[in-house]
Nucleic acid binder design. Sequence first.
RNA 1: GAGCCCGUAGCUCAGGGGUAGAGCAUCUGCCUUUUAAGCAGAGGGCCGUUGGUUCAAUUCCAACCGGGCUCACCA
Length: 489
Amino acid sequence: MRRRREELEELHKLGINPYPYNYNVTDSSTSIINSFTDEQPPREVAVAGRIMSIRRMGKASFCHLQDAQGRIQAYLKKDDLGGSYDTFKLLDIGDIIGVEGYVFKTKMGEISIHARKLEILSKSLRPLPIVKEKVDEQGNKTIFDPFSDKELRYRQRYVDLAVNVKVREVFVKRSLILRAMRKFLDERGYLEVETPILQPIYGGAFARPFTTHHNALDIDLYLRIADELYLKRLIVGGYDGVYEFAKDFRNEGMDRSHNPEFTMMELYVAYKDYIWMMNLVEEMVSTVALAVNGTMKWKVGENEIDFTPPWKRISMYDVIKEYTGKDLRDKSEEEIRRFAKELRIEIEPGMGRGSIIDEIFSEKVEAKLIQPTFITDYPVEMSPLAKKHRSEPGLVERFEVMVNGHELCNAFSELNDPIDQRQRFEEQMKLRARGDEEAQVLDEDYLRALEYGMPPTAGLGIGIDRLTMLFTNQDSIRDVLFFPQMKRE
RNA sequence: GAGCCCGUAGCUCAGGGGUAGAGCAUCUGCCUUUUAAGCAGAGGGCCGUUGGUUCAAUUCCAACCGGGCUCACCA
């Protein structure tokens, strides 16, 4: 680093501004490489990027420039650069430069830029980790000295991105996923909206919130754990369909699939039910799959997943029956409890019928559902915002989609009966009183909204981070978040 | 929250009770089509922090800090 500061001084002394204001880029690295022909006279180009490697040979040098698209080699010869060649001697890997010159192919066959002009665009003061790669004749890449320390990669994502091109690709895909989804929803006429992140009462999910304080009002506020209740207020207000890509915050443990802040897309559509929503989800996710990966079949780890609709639809009871051989329909809480014990599933004494069923599902079924599968019709106790099933007592009209052994989204026919909703909230408040910190809080204003009348509505929540993990084949949420939460350095 | 593992040069890692090692990077010299460029030489370290055991600790022990994996909790 000291050396680099000296070089910076040298540049200043030579009257060169190491941090100029702009540069006129004419082409990107890959556009040059892809459009190369042996035409005469050769094409003149100007590219800018970060120096990723330098090979100096006395009075001539090669270096690789990396721009947003890829890499291209530049050939710098003293005869053609004169004084700037001495400037080049003051440059390092990591510096950002602009090179103007003509395109040619080297003896070794690499399309390169023969530099006529060189301009320093930003002097780097910290050494960048050097990642070397060798490409053999089959085109296989071997990486030497990878920048692989996860802690450093997450804490200094800018370095990770600069040095590990694959990482940049993951986030480009994340952006494509958002774009494809937004396009899909916009084409159907749904309105993208924004609702409060700071909420006086939190709701819409089971989770502990982050608390903050508003000084002027002198009130505590919560960072939202979901935007569900606000979006449904908008349906009460008369919109047909609303959606939001929402950053939600949950004050809970962190692991491979949980970060304290994460992104959820929630969608509510008036006059529809959960069966209609299943069709939409199938269509949306397969459309996104095609837009992002160009195929419906996508290999995640060992499993090839086929997103082609239609997906299997099976009720919670039936899928448990399929995987355990036991039909829990019409069974009492006591019978189900006994069955869970037979399966050696740990059951807390306070757990009700619904929770035990859910536990059996998580333990015995969930991980086995690899292909996209709708699990439908959940016990009412676990779903205080979902509408009672039209024909099955004790159940609600709810589904989750399981893919690769994990939940991908959650949806229901929304409960719009204000009296039923009040009772459900009251049930939750009882659980709360018994010490369940994640039970939901009664939201009087939300009830007031329902009392004005909400049309039948289908609602959906889909975890964007997990969807991205799926489509980019990453097994940690940290690898699909630019800046995952970390402890203080 | 529990268990296991890790922390040594800018990066990736080896080592091991007696003044610290490699490759790449860096610096000097040579080299005008190289590509993990090459050749010759050089510099670079609070061995995560604090404490303990010891004549002596980077090494052994403990606590702490940070990270990873697994499990638990959790949508």
